[in-house]
């Protein structure tokens, strides 16, 4: 059983002048238990629509989603999920601690457990000092961190995070990445959306790329990076003279064989490859061309 399964999900809106807008088209993917899945796409690609559909906030036109085998339309399917919406907003008249208490109650945690867990997540997200202040006075980054804290409160098995790094300063981003890595170590499943490719490279096991409501590619980050190898930068030293050579991927074996027969010494070999961003831009531009 997958942590999250999306089957031929489609969502069609009626836009201005009754124009049909296909926000999602036959999107299918599964997130395996214990993996970090990055959902990458440009703005307006359908990332948030997918997540909102999974969280039961939008009804799909066709297809369905399930969380640990339970239909996403059932509120009980969210019992094992920690959800952070995009640009979260919380009741401003409550303090951070009161909001966490409210969230804990909806997960049927008892008071002592809520207190204990609240302290833990507030400390983890560096919010202890602001816990008793009304949320009204929180900065954008603090609200974002509170969003992550409330998602972690009940120690869920699956995290669904919509742009978790949005609105955070570099320190906050580093903190969130560290938290995601730690959650992965604990065996938690994480499904998060982003349009920042660097985040995917650092924390994800697999990535799905979405553009204009269609899933364009799903692969492991390792495969993508490996398939993006264009050649090798080789540093060779001959009679005390060092030179840099660029060797094509398919010529590497032949080149190395030549080197062995010569008196040159290989100092360094570095793969020269496209990064995740280049891969992402390739796919998005392909989609643009096919649409034209």
């Amino acid at each position: 059983m997958h942590a999250l399964e999306i089957v031929t999900l489609s969502k069609r809106y009626l836009g201005k002048r009754l124009k049909r807008v296909d926000a999602l088209q036959d999107l299918s993917l599964e997130v395996r238990t214990g993996e970090v899945f990055g959902f990458l796409g440009p703005n307006g690609a359908g990332k948030s629509t997918t997540i909102k559909t999974v969280m039961g906030q939008i009804k799909p036109t066709a297809g369905h989603a399930s969380i640990f085998g339970r239909p996403a339309t059932e509120s009980s399917s969210r019992l094992r999920v920690g959800y952070l919406p995009e640009n979260p907003s919380f009741y401003e008249f409550l303090t951070g601690r009161e909001y966490l208490h409210f969230v804990g109650k909806t997960f049927s945690l008892n008071n002592s457990m809520i207190t204990e867990q609240s302290e833990h997540v507030l400390e983890l997200l560096e919010l202890t000092h602001a816990a008793d202040r009304p949320i009204k006075g929180y900065s954008k980054g603090m609200v974002q961190r509170l969003g992550l804290a409330q998602a972690m409160l009940h120690d869920p098995d699956l995290y669904v995070l919509d742009e978790p790094m949005s609105g955070l300063d570099p320190l906050g981003r580093a903190l969130v990445k560290e938290i995601i890595k730690n959650l992965k170590k604990q065996g938690k499943t994480i499904f998060f959306s982003t349009h920042i490719t660097a985040d995917i490279e650092v924390v994800c096991d697999r990535v799905g790329i979405i553009a204009k409501g269609r899933l364009m590619a799903v692969d492991t980050v390792e495969n993508i990076l490996q398939s993006g190898v264009e050649g090798y930068q080789i540093q060779v030293s001959r009679h005390g003279h060092v030179e840099e050579l660029l060797v094509a991927k398919d010529r590497l074996k032949e080149f190395m064989a030549e080197l062995v027969t010569s008196d040159a010494v290989v100092e360094r070999i570095e793969p020269k490859r496209k990064d995740m961003e280049a891969f992402f831009l390739d796919i998005v531009s392909k989609e643009k061309h096919s649409a034209q």
Partner: peptide, 14 residues
């Protein structure tokens, strides 16, 4: 309007 429901209805509540 204030998007509180986006957070609240992501919890296991009906």
């Amino acid at each position: 309007e204030k998007r509180y429901t986006a957070s609240i209805l992501g919890l296991p509540v009906s």
